[in-house]
């Protein structure tokens, strides 16, 4: 990806296309991950979890570039990202 400015901690934040993993039971549907994702890789789904919250889902077009913001701001430790390569190996 082309960056207009190199982040100060770029060396430790190297990103790789990733898959978003959701622990459905923990999610409380706040939409932070959906709203603040820079690439709009997630949307809210119509699926409801056991607690009655609508939960997000990753769009199938694989737009996640692994910036980690959703993981960092999810209030419920409900989602995290796994680099695509590792994810495909099924780790």
């Amino acid at each position: 990806m082309k960056l207009w400015r190199k982040p100060f901690d770029f060396h430790e934040q190297a990103t790789a296309p990733s898959k978003v993993v959701l622990n459905k039971d923990r999610c409380k549907g706040c939409e932070y991950c959906v709203v603040f994702c820079p690439t709009k890789a997630l949307v809210m789904s119509t699926e409801m979890n056991a607690k009655g919250y609508l939960i997000p889902v990753e769009l199938p077009d694989g737009k996640c570039l692994g910036c980690g913001l959703c993981e960092a701001i999810c209030p419920d430790f409900a989602l995290w990202i796994v680099p695509l390569e590792a994810a495909q190996k099924g780790e």
Partner: peptide, 18 residues
């Protein structure tokens, strides 16, 4: 102990993650 007691959208969770 998850899910925790904090409300949907509460900022305590992300500060704990950090």
């Amino acid at each position: 102990r998850m899910p925790h007691i904090w409300c949907s959208g509460c900022g305590v969770g992300p500060s704990v993650a950090c």
